Amino acid sequence: MSTMPFNDVAARRMARLAGLSYVLYSAAGIYITFGPIPSLSALGDENASPLLALMFRTGFLAEVVLYTFVCVSAAAMYMVLKSVGQGPALVAAFCRLIEGAMGATFIIFKYAVFITVVNPELTPGFSDDQRASLVSLLRDVYGSAIYFLLIPMAVGGVLFFSLFFRSRFIPRWLSAWGIFTYLVIGSVAATVILYPALEEKIMLFFLPGALFEWVAAFWLLFAGINTKHWMARSS
């Protein structure tokens, strides 16, 4: 397993950047999930106000923030962990970048649904039933395909926190929690892809993952990393 020379100052800075990125994309995720974003059916009402459309657009902005900082966190984590194992760190970073790229693609699908709902004149050849079917199709594609994104996310997370466990940059209990969390996320996502009917029954398994990312985010941002074990081992 190849390693690179360790730069303590740069690693500490990148760890805090990774923590800040985790905070920002986790906050964006909370806004997307629990924020005041109206439903598509509300937007399709002929009496819907422009404010509802604006609120829905804030959801797009939050998703852009989310996937942007997923990529920033991947780059920062690679810089922190490349000295521990350059190969696994690089694979992990690419997995998180794949997650970001897939997320950007899904935003396009969601935006297509939004435009179809708020601007029916863009599909003048469609009847109301055909337009409703198109909206339903695009919405379901977005809602179902999001689970494919969680697979590279899980692989990247397991690799990153395995390297954290090895280096002891953060407490090993936190690293082990991270490995377990991303294994669960990947397993649940794969289960939903294979057996969609189980989706509602196993969604609760995602909650520990959300809690872990907040704990890891604040640990990296405020406590930072402890490099003495790795520096002693390297020397």
Rank of each mutant, 00 (worst) to 15 (best):
D8P: 00
A10S: 11
A11K: 07
A11R: 03
R13T: 07
A18F: 02
S21L: 07
S21A: 15
Y22F: 15
L24Q: 08
A27H: 03
T33V: 04
S39D: 15
S41V: 11
A42K: 14
E46Y: 06
N47C: 00
S49T: 15
L52C: 06
A53L: 02
R57I: 09
F60S: 03
A62G: 12
Y67V: 00
C71P: 00
C71E: 01
A75P: 00
Y78P: 01
L81C: 07
G87V: 12
L90K: 10
L90D: 01
V91I: 15
A93G: 04
C95S: 14
C95R: 05
R96S: 05
I98C: 10
M102W: 08
P120V: 01
D129E: 14
D129Y: 05
Q130P: 04
A132W: 06
L137N: 09
D140C: 00
G143T: 09
G143R: 10
S144D: 10
I146K: 11
L149G: 11
L150R: 07
A154S: 10
G157D: 02
V158D: 01
R166C: 04
S167T: 04
F169E: 01
F169Y: 13
P171Y: 10
L174V: 07
W177D: 05
F180W: 11
T181E: 09
I185H: 07
V188T: 13
I202P: 10
F212M: 05
E213G: 03
E213D: 10
V215D: 03
A217R: 01
F218S: 00
I225M: 05
R233F: 13
R233S: 14
